[in-house]
Design a protein around this nucleic acid. Structure first.
Lengths: 253, 253
DNA sequence: CGACCGCTTGACGGGAATCAAATGGCGTGG
DNA sequence: CCACGCCATTTGATTCCCGTCAAGCGGTCG
């Protein structure tokens, strides 16, 4: 993945990143690039939140360890994402590299003064925060009422949207995170994730070119994948009617 | 609940709301108060996000209707909360009153220009956004790996923290939302919520003074409730060791 | 009184967790 | 080169929590 790539990726998530005036990416460009090896930590939950980060390349995971030792991956981060905008005292989560990754870091103080002084930057921080909030709510919906298959299909589609450059529909996708990572992100166990993968393969929704490369997926039926993800937005017409009283249930089919 | 109350509630959620210079509450004070009757809608998912709101009194629910007609309540809102800070084009969710409620509304444009012009206001908006983000992530953790009992206990405790004035430990709590509301917020069914309530009553963790007033809970064992909520933060000492490789599982006991 | 509503309770089944074992790739070392 | 162990993943057998369907209960209102 090259420099031009993540600029594109950034644009896809954020409709207002034209290069008018200052932009977040150029703000971070002054900082030296740092490289992380796979599974290397960036910071830990509870640490003083002294820096904010830009992801240049690779994939990171952001997670919390809950009381009984289990891990909840609240998000994966991709090139063009930023970390730590909406924090004040301490990090609420840990961050690690999934793949070898490149990032830039900036002291929070420096970041805050730069943003306070520039209208454009504030707008971009705001936009990024809105995206993050929307993504988190989407994940809440997934966890609140989707089946294992729906969760996995949703996840594959989201991942594809982040790694494929705008528009094109790639036939094959690399899922760099482990099955355990996927499980911890989807609120499932590794066994269920594995079983659901084989189910999708049996249905020929996806396939593996090389059984050894289990992270390389070929998407056989995009439409089916979308359908199985279960977020068909066909409820727009009911929304405004007000007479909707059919709530309840988790609808696991 | 009186005027002084929600100022207190606001302070509990937001460590920096001393009345230095402008504050969000005084900004909204210029707007007329509006009253909502129970279950009255404030706006719908997909509407143009033309206003931002302050909750003065009562409880609101914020929710999305997913494709198969089910409802996911992403949050309940209490006096001192604001709605719509992190939005740009359209509302991502609907909002309704749970109880009779009082709110103030302000046109988004007006809000944005006021915030853009004032450093203090920006800081407060930022703080509120951080709180919202933290709460949303907490909810993700709940949905990702907690059992029905843990979810309900967590919810009761959170609700208590929002409605009781700072510090005091009230013996009895009013849960104004219906069982269905609770279910849709916790990713459960109404039957499971009901069963879990009776389980807690049988364990004498909570009790009902009057069986007819099922929304009025007496908390018999605060410690037990906290324990059953399952967010004992006893993992602080493992966090930094780095050698933690015991992830996985949903741990439903 | 009877209909309706919110809630509870019961019976049952299913989907995912749990426990356990097998597979298969990969690196190390003899 | 092959044996061995390690690791991630898969697969199987079983359990169990919670969803589903259905009925019952009390309270309120017309």
């Amino acid at each position: 993945m090259f420099l031009t790539d993540y600029i594109g990726a950034l644009d896809t998530r954020n409709s207002m990143n034209v290069n008018e005036g200052n932009c977040l990416h150029t703000l971070f460009a002054k900082q030296p690039a740092e490289h992380l090896s796979a599974s290397q930590s960036l910071f830990f939950e509870g640490d003083d939140a002294n820096h904010v980060y830009e992801v240049l390349d690779g994939v990171l995971r952001v997670f919390r360890i809950v009381s009984d030792g289990r891990r909840v991956i609240t998000a994966f981060l991709y090139p063009g994402d930023f970390i730590g905008f909406s924090l004040r005292e301490t990090y609420l989560y840990s961050a690690e590299a999934v793949t070898p990754a490149t990032i830039r870091r900036m002291p929070r103080r420096q970041f805050e003064t730069a943003v306070a002084a520039d209208e454009d930057l504030r707008a971009q921080v705001f936009a990024k925060t809105c995206c993050e909030m929307a993504a988190t709510q989407e994940q809440m919906v997934l966890l609140a009422c989707k089946s294992a298959e729906e969760r996995l299909c949703s996840f594959i589609r989201r991942h594809m949207q982040r790694v494929t450059m705008s528009g094109e529909r790639a036939a094959t996708v690399d899922l760099p995170m482990s099955r355990q990572d996927v499980a911890d992100h989807l609120g499932l166990t590794i066994e269920t994730v594995s079983r659901t993968f084989t189910k999708l393969i049996n249905k020929n929704v996806i396939s593996l070119d090389n059984p050894a490369a289990r992270h390389l997926l070929r998407i056989e039926k995009h439409g089916m994948l979308e359908f199985l993800a279960g977020d068909n937005d066909d409820c727009a017409e009911i929304r405004q009617q007000g007479g909707l009283v059919m709530y309840g249930g988790r609808g696991r089919h």
